[in-house]
Design a binder for these strands. Sequence first.
RNA 1: GUGGCCGUAGUUCAAUGGUAGAGCCCCAGAUUGUGAUUCUGGUUGUUGCGGGUUCGAGUCCCGUCGGUCACCCCA
Length: 413
Amino acid sequence: MKGLPGFRDFYPEPIPTADSWSLDLRRHIFDTWRGTAERYGFREYDGPPIEELELYTKKSGDEIVGQLYNFTDKGSRNVSLRPEMTPTLARMAAAHTRNYKKPIKWFSIPQLFRYERQQKGRLREHFQLNADIIGEENLAADAELIALLIDTLRNLKLTSDDFVVRLSSRHAWQDFFENSSAHEKDVCDFYQIIDKLDREDPIVSGEKLAKLGFSLEQVNDFIESGQATDELAAIIGNIEARGLGDFIKVDYQIIRGLAYYTGPVYEAFDKRGKFRAIAGGGRYDHLVKLVSGGKTDLPALGFGMGDVVLAELLKDRGLVPPLGQALDAFVQITDESLRNASLSLVQQLRQAGQATEYPLLRAKPDKQLKRALELKAKWLVTLDNANQAHIKNLGTREEQTVPLVDVASALQD
RNA sequence: GUGGCCGUAGUUCAAUGGUAGAGCCCCAGAUUGUGAUUCUGGUUGUUGCGGGUUCGAGUCCCGUCGGUCACCCCA
């Protein structure tokens, strides 16, 4: 039996093959995500991995169903594995908004699903850091989130040589759109065309734009001008004040595909152009109202950062830290008559907080030593008799003899 | 959903259409008065699966499943 297509198995280090997914690497990423978000004052939340299908079609239309991992459950409900976290967050926030002081700063690390054939950096499931701020319309919130995004990547040891946040805004494009003779109803189609500019044939894009009353040249000129609006200048000023100015630039090519974005939008890109976008987000001021059926109306914004592209990027840049078991002590048993005394010692060490291993069954000395080295044990502990042991630091090769009762404290050094 | 490439032992890879192999890993034993040693032996395959062509298919053809990459879509 194999796993389902597009789903991953995560093995502990050492991973069996070079392209296996490492749970230790995953944990390194999650720990960094969680640690950075908490230092920014964000609180962790979670929701159900399955939601009613309608939660997703409500804001994106029925076309999205083709991309969803959806099915009918035994109660004849139309449900879907969650493809993104934002609708769940909007639902949760709308339901209990009065119970929290504003702004609400929350993050989550959900596993998300989509039903499509896999390709580079895109599987049928992935984990994503989601950080959102609800209830603050000021640009300071946008800047705070972008700073979190940048610091999260910096804490993974990526530098301004590795990535840049490309900042844009729907407001800027809206002004551009309204300064023309185009019809307001076409604005969503217009955004779609901009979103596809870099992967669509320019001739096709030009034709589509012409139908809405624009020329490709006109659009390209606007993108190339890269002139920051007051809104974007304020965000960049905020980021610069934190000393993170090297990590951000205006780029009107970014507009994001989703219909619900309403203001500033951004994506973090690998500077060498080898990978897909590392992260993306923006402001969605009307989504909470939409999901709550009009009961609650709160401005909101957020970003998502997936683990698949990130893991590939870290491996590519040699930024994966040493991973694997970090054993404190290996208690070897060379004399089986001392097994019970050794077990007693193992118990003491474990109770003292030392990660401790020992041979479950009689084993040859060379095998035991080899195992201790493979497990990267810091200490090798051997009982000489029922009252005395010698401990060896496997890093420095220093050895000393200590009374049995002092072993645990000797290992603390 | 569409298309390209790929599929041999746990793993990395061999095998002109002619008896399916090697290194590594793993396991056992021997040696070693403790630093990854050395020696000996051993397990493992319906060649992804199902058809077809052929005297004979890992090899050629078709289908299917899986992997991978691109398209569609982008959360």
